[in-house]
Write a protein that binds this DNA or RNA. Structure first.
Lengths: 310, 310
DNA sequence: ACAACGATGTAACATATGTAACATAAACCT
DNA sequence: AGGTTTATGTTACATATGTTACATCGTTGT
């Protein structure tokens, strides 16, 4: 029996038929220990899902306020977990629900996505859809530092979750210099790629802060670049590798001329610009992208929502 | 705090944040016993839902076979539970998933529904949708015997689940005589009602067998009518109160001229005719409605699917 | 073929959950 | 207001789940 099928069977017997782990073990001729492990794994991998038929009124209120304050097209507020380690997962859950509904009802032809922990968690919670006509593409260059939150894994994972087509952007997030960036993007293949990126129907991104908590700050910045330098230049965070000030404008810094991602004016022409992020260290950048209209759909946690509404 | 909100909060803390019941009790200033009860209730009432990201391959295979054999528009096969008491719930779960998807993607203007245990369970598992433009209406008369599987409760429950409009059919399933039926349906209000019923985009019904297991046989038949009489006349079960033989044709019996439900020829003109039912006592009637094309979407359990495919 | 590593079985144990028994408080009915 | 019924708190207990420790088996790599 295929492993996934094993998980579904055991989980069905446990959650729907209400058997104990021991009974399931006997039924399926495996040890209780295996049953326990399989059931945990089924929850962890998203084969079994827990969902809620109601939102908390607190979240609903905050969503209304966010939409009004920032003229957002939509907003999703998830409860802030006590344990900060759970924040990405909770945000990912909220985002996956939203994206699942959006994909099913609006049938976008193309989706551009970023990378990072929140996006990684989103994939984990995505419903399985069958959308082979949709193209999922990276919106920006990635880290050369391999990891599962890297752009390749995330684009592929997302495309797989919805059985869509996958388009990579094979470049680092930063070129070595502005001149180097000009040389790269003047190539025909990159020009075509950038055009396609700017033509997506939906963009789904996260934002980063300017601290060592950011993987990009840790692994993506060119030699000699640090968070202090960026902060001094007025940066409160980044969107697609572009460092922004508190008003959501690009800081006047060389780094922003080395970045391999769409110009913000091009980005703004995408109809559906979703930004999902949360946590205390993200309040400033979240406020910046909401206030400036860079994001027209915001997905965040309740504490962050309150902070940016204050 | 509203009770539903209490359930969502407790369930979130338990299922998402992973707190123990004791920790939740402390967080929410209630006893652990209350937490335990609330968590159980949340699952029971559908506030918290367990879903599966994969179907069993066995179910998928049977669905394919059903569609081919009977030229069905679609089929849903749910695993047959060991405990027959769970059958309605499992069927309701499968049907709710299917209906939820159908409503969201196809946006029907009107849905006609029947009544019975399977339909009752369907409501319990329906996702909350917001579809105020949809009209949900009874397709046939009901039992005068009050119960929560009665047509009124079911139409209202279904309409509430999807925030739709609710239209009752205020009549018993059987008139006293064929003449009485003629008198009833010749009234303008009933003529208009029948036309609206026959104009629904989607019909969602169950079927009954000819035994004391059927509530209709127990409480709905007129005086002097019994299952033996119906069986002698060739009946294997009923659809909307119309007793059918093994080929899916109405038996030649007075009772079928007393029934307050659409003529089968009218029924066949509805585009989407869903029948959900299962269990050993339903195999014959399920085969009859599938074979004859009365149902063009079938929702049943794996054992029943195998039986009607044999 | 052998060594190393990972997966799994077995048994035990800690803790979490589900439930029962009884008392008390709250709600309902007359 | 008083009596009855239902809901809830407290405590205890049975059982189910989650995890650990160690042994064994299966797989992988050289």
């Amino acid at each position: 029996m295929e492993h996934r099928e094993l998980m579904v069977r055991a989980a069905w017997l446990y959650h729907v038929e209400g058997l104990t782990q021991q009974q399931i073990a006997e039924r399926m001729n495996i040890t209780r220990r295996r049953v326990n492990e399989i059931l945990s794994e089924a929850l962890e991998t998203g084969v079994v899902r827990i969902s809620f038929d109601s939102a908390l009124s607190e979240s609903v209120e905050l969503e209304v306020k966010l939409r009004k304050r920032f003229a957002l097209r939509d907003a999703v507020v998830v409860p802030t977990p006590n344990e900060t380690a759970l924040l990405h997962s909770v945000l990912g859950r909220g985002a996956a629900g939203f994206l699942g509904r959006l994909i099913q009802t609006q049938k976008p032809a193309s989706i551009g996505i970023g990378w990072g922990s929140t996006l990684r968690e989103t994939i984990q919670h995505m419903p399985s859809l069958n959308e082979p006509q949709i193209k999922v593409r990276s919106m920006m260059g990635g880290l050369t530092h391999g990891s599962e939150i890297n752009t390749f894994e995330i684009v592929r994972g997302f495309a797989q979750a919805i059985s869509a087509q996958c388009r990579y952007f094979a470049a680092p997030i930063y070129a070595e210099s502005p001149e180097s960036r000009e040389a790269i993007i003047s190539q025909t293949v990159f020009q075509r790629t950038f055009r396609q990126i700017c033509d997506v129907d939906v963009a789904y991104l996260s934002v980063g802060d300017v601290s060592q908590q950011s993987l990009q700050v840790r692994y993506g910045l060119p030699e000699g670049m640090s968070e202090e330098i960026l902060q001094k230049a007025g940066a409160v965070g980044d969107l697609m590798g572009r460092y922004l000030n508190a008003s959501g404008q690009e800081i006047d810094h060389l780094l922003n001329r080395q970045v391999l991602s769409p110009e913000l004016d091009d980005f703004r022409r995408i109809g559906c610009r979703i930004v999902a992020s949360g946590g205390a260290h993200k309040h400033k950048i979240l406020h910046a992208v909401a206030q400036s209209g860079l994001a027209n759909i915001l997905i965040t946690d309740a504490d962050s929502a309150r902070a940016i509404l204050a």
